[in-house]
């Protein structure tokens, strides 16, 4: 049977939930699914991987003497070595900062086709569906080549529980670091913060937030429901929050189950980044705002009144 490799992302010792939808996507093609685990103990994840239909766990240890926790160039070569050794021609990873670093490097090295940010993939036919033109259209892309690579948009494909027995393949791969590309330092982000590309709930603020300090209201509210905080371009350009929080055409494209837009008017560029959300809730004083007419539920009201009340309500519930 043909094999499909999936690059598993692990954060703080846990498999990110988004991996499971990606595994379901790989399983759909009726192939053997090889979970590639980089520099971590694969056995720790056996239970969850076997509950989702993985056939093999490939524990890749990179570097040998030149081991570094993260060097995308080195890790690219290690993954390619593993793909060659195991005859893996199709590879999936998440369209996350890690996937954005690895997949295009692997595709470039193999001169292989790659479609990023896929919302659906048909591995047999080599077809991928993704948003094009800033989320204003959905395109179907045909890939041809000896390999095929796909970046999967987190949280769009639902996980499918299937029981399997996974074999364990341990692959220490000696990949010296090239003098051309070195990792100097890794500065992790705030780990308490859920990343917007993977969050189930996003609460976002726009121009109406008025200041950096006011964003604390959103952070407090987000904390009570395990949400991530997003922002419109204006809020980012004003310097109230960092660029990583921007949702939209020139920011992140997100697909949470719920998107709560606070004081965001809803420009076409902002919608480009969040229109795939499961449910959109708008809180806005202006009932004429584009966000209000294009959402599922709206509250015509002042976010400075509604958001603290929501935080309070959710805090009470938690007790």
């Amino acid at each position: 049977m043909e094999k499909t490799g999936v690059v598993i992302e692990i954060k703080k010792g846990r498999i990110k939930d988004a991996n499971l939808g990606m595994i379901a996507c790989a399983r759909a093609a009726n192939r053997e699914v090889y979970a590639l685990i980089l520099n971590d103990t694969a056995e720790n994840f056996r239970e969850i991987l076997e509950a989702h239909g993985v056939h093999a766990m490939v524990e890749i240890t990179t570097g040998g003497a030149d081991h570094t926790p993260w060097n995308p160039e080195q890790h690219t070569r290690a993954i390619i070595t593993a793909m060659e050794a195991l005859h893996i021609k199709a590879l999936l990873a998440l369209t996350t900062p890690m996937g954005r670093e690895l997949l295009p490097r692997i595709a470039a090295a193999l001169d292989a086709p790659l479609v990023m940010d896929c919302i659906d993939v048909d591995l047999e036919k080599g077809l991928a569906r993704t948003t094009l033109y800033s989320g204003k259209t959905i395109g179907t892309i045909q890939v041809t080549g000896s390999h095929e690579l796909f970046g999967i948009r987190p949280n769009v494909i639902a996980p499918v529980p299937v029981k399997t027995k996974a074999k364990m393949i341990s692959m220490p791969i000696d990949t010296p670091v090239s003098g051309k590309f070195k990792t100097v330092e890794i500065l992790p982000g705030q780990s308490s913060q859920t990343d917007i590309t993977e969050a189930d709930i996003i609460i976002s603020g726009g121009r109406a937030m008025q200041s950096k300090e006011n964003f604390d209201l959103l952070f407090q509210c987000a904390h009570t429901m395990g949400a991530a905080v997003g922002a419109s371009r204006v809020a980012v350009d004003m310097g109230w929050v960092p660029y990583t929080m921007q949702v939209g055409q020139t920011g992140e494209k997100v697909s949470p189950r719920v998107y709560i837009a606070c004081g965001i008017s809803g420009s076409i560029q902002h919608f480009a980044g969040m229109k795939m959300s499961g449910m959109i809730i708008a809180i806005n004083t202006n009932a004429e705002a584009a966000m209000v007419s294009n959402c599922d539920y709206f509250i015509e009201g002042d976010l400075f009144e509604i958001v603290p009340l929501l935080t309070q309500r959710l805090t009470q519930k938690a007790k």
Partner: peptide
């Protein structure tokens, strides 16, 4: 990278 993190290369 994610959550405001950075890799320095």
């Amino acid at each position: 990278t994610e959550g405001g993190g950075k890799n320095i290369y």
